[in-house]
Structures are given as structure tokens and as C-alpha cells.
């Protein structure tokens, strides 16, 4: 069984991708070479930008099965419309019009059960791309990328997670920001969740909602405070009141910001910076052994 770690954050831009890519480097170097990084932030997959020498190994189209209505068989009974909970089907009997909106369809298959006239056929609809990369160390990067204009983030994430299942002994997932359904899908089944926050009022507000979610899902987690030194102490007070572990504090530094902006994995060249990630790994291992 793989050990699954997910990096999440309520607020965007707290440094989730920075933490995920640096942690991947440290896991590979210091813990287990058989570690896979999985980018679940399919709307904005940015992990790849941190691996300048990445080589594309595999590329698969991610599709969703969306039914089409064969109007020569359809009797316009509207039973499929009644079965569709997502209002994706339009049938207008007097003008013999029937169609399904792919952007509203969840591919649940209910309409197929509804139709007694064999008028529905499922066709593959492209919603994204799944790519595997060699990055020069470790097991590499598996990336999900939502097709622009598609609203089907969650099925793309589900597909990528299925591919990653037991693909390495340690799997590190980079989740999207926020707390909506796509975050739930990314975080689901994690053995440990790292929440990245920044010590600002926005960071704190969004962290609280994310903590609520992870607690509801009953998953073990700890918090990394990134950009420490900016903002105020309110995040620290909150974490202390709630009895939440601080895995590590990573100070804000303008030089770091510049390096990250170029897509650099700083742990590879800066020993002082790398120590933060070694500490995070040590804390997670302590948890794992408990």
C-alpha cells in the first residue's frame, strides 16, 4: 500500500505548489526514491514548471461519457428529462427537439435507465489531458490538465487519482485551492494532509474553512505556515486554540520569492531552505509510526 500525502490550502497563492515540489525533492533525496508527485490542481497545473528537464513519457486524453439522443428512435416521452437531476436534457415534443448539454452532464447514467426506446448512446467527450513525466529524480510527475472551457474538474481529478493508485510507495498529491468538491476529491483517502497557509487575515479565514473540511473528512493533518514574518500572529493564536500541529514555519524572503517565481526548487541548491522540508518529513514519519 502506498503512503499518500496531500498538500492542500484554503487560500490560493499561499505557496502550495512550492511546498509540494520542494517536498517531492526532499522525499526522493531523504526518504524514498519511489515517490510520485501528482498534480490535482487541474485548472492551473503548475508543478511541471518547476521541472525544467521534464520529459513527457505518456499522454492520455481524459474523457467523460456523455449520452447523445438518436432522434430517429426518440419518442419524446421526456422520461430522461425527469431522471436527470442536473437539468442537462432538453426535450420539446411539439417540435421534436431533443438534446443533452455536455457541460451540465455528470455522466451518472440515469437517463440510460430511463429510456425505453434505446435512443441514447454514450459518446466520449474530451474534458482534459493526463500526462506522465520523467523529471530526472524519483518516480516523476503525473499531471491532470482540464481542457479550457470545460467545467468537469472533478472527473479529471478522479481519473488521475485512479492512475496513481499504488503507482509508488509514496504518493504526494498537490490539491487545488479552496474547499469545494474538487478539493474533496483530491484529498479523499489521504493518509496525511499538509495544509499550507500564510499568516494574513485572508490566509487565516480560508484556513479555518479548510480545517473544517478536513476535520469533517476525519483525516490527520498538520499546517505549514509559509511566508512567516508577513502579516500578524492571528494564525498562530488560532492554531494554538484549536490544538493543531504546526509542521513547520517557512520564513518570507524576497530572494526566495524571486527564485520561486522562476520555477526553481530551492531545496536543491539551498541547504538552509532544504532543512524546512526535512523537518516536515520527520514530523510526518513520527505520525506514520504512531
Amino acid at each position: 500500500m502506498s503512503f499518500k500525502i496531500t498538500v492542500a490550502s484554503g487560500k490560493g497563492g499561499t505557496g502550495k505548489t512550492t511546498v509540494a515540489t520542494n517536498l517531492y525533492w526532499s522525499l526522493v533525496k531523504n526518504f524514498d526514491n519511489d515517490t510520485l508527485l501528482v498534480d490535482c490542481d487541474v485548472e492551473e497545473p503548475d508543478d511541471l514548471l518547476f521541472f525544467k528537464n521534464a520529459i513527457l513519457r505518456s499522454e492520455v486524453k481524459v474523457t467523460q461519457a456523455v449520452p447523445e439522443i438518436n432522434t430517429s428512435k426518440c419518442t419524446y416521452c421526456r422520461k430522461c428529462v425527469e431522471y436527470c437531476e442536473y437539468n442537462a436534457i432538453t426535450v420539446i415534443p411539439p417540435v421534436q427537439y431533443a438534446s443533452i448539454a455536455p457541460d451540465l452532464c455528470h455522466s451518472c447514467g440515469a437517463c440510460l435507465y430511463a429510456c425505453q426506446d434505446d435512443a441514447l448512446i454514450e459518446k466520449d467527450h474530451e474534458i482534459g489531458l493526463m500526462s506522465g513525466y520523467d523529471v530526472g529524480f524519483g518516480k516523476g510527475l503525473l499531471e491532470g490538465r482540464l481542457k479550457i472551457g470545460s467545467a468537469a474538474q472533478t472527473p479529471v481529478i478522479r481519473r488521475v487519482k485512479k492512475e496513481a493508485l499504488d503507482a509508488a510507495s509514496v504518493i504526494l498529491f498537490d490539491a487545488p485551492p479552496g474547499t469545494s468538491c474538487s478539493v474533496v476529491t483530491s484529498v479523499l483517502d489521504a493518509d496525511f494532509v499538509i495544509m499550507v497557509t500564510e499568516p494574513t487575515p485572508f490566509g487565516l479565514h480560508d484556513l479555518k474553512i479548510a480545517v473544517e473540511l478536513i476535520r469533517e473528512m476525519d483525516l490527520p493533518f498538520g499546517v505549514v505556515i509559509n511566508k512567516a514574518g508577513l502579516g500578524d500572529r492571528a494564525v498562530y493564536d488560532y492554531l494554538e486554540d484549536e490544538g493543531i500541529d504546526i509542521l513547520e514555519e517557512i520564513p518570507f524572503n524576497e530572494e526566495y520569492a524571486r527564485k520561486f517565481s522562476e520555477g526553481m526548487i530551492l531545496s536543491r541548491i539551498d541547504k538552509n531552505y532544504a532543512i524546512h522540508y526535512q523537518k516536515i518529513i520527520r514530523k510526518i514519519l513520527e505520525f506514520k509510526q504512531q
Binding site: Y86, N87, T90, I92, P94, V95, Y97, A101
Partner: peptide
């Protein structure tokens, strides 16, 4: 309706066989 209200409303209009609709705003669908 939680989604696709515009489409369903258009459905009614088409079923009624009217040629013209007067309103303040129409969504893209």
C-alpha cells in the same frame, strides 16, 4: 430550478408556438 432555468423557460416558449418573446434579459443558452 437550480440550473438551466433559461433552457427550460425557452422550452415552454417553444412549446407554446409563439414567434416573439419580450423580456429584460436573455442568457446565452
Amino acid at each position: 430550478q437550480s440550473s438551466a432555468a433559461g433552457t427550460t423557460a425557452a422550452e415552454t416558449v417553444i412549446e407554446q408556438g409563439v414567434k416573439k418573446v419580450i423580456s429584460g434579459d436573455f442568457g446565452p443558452k
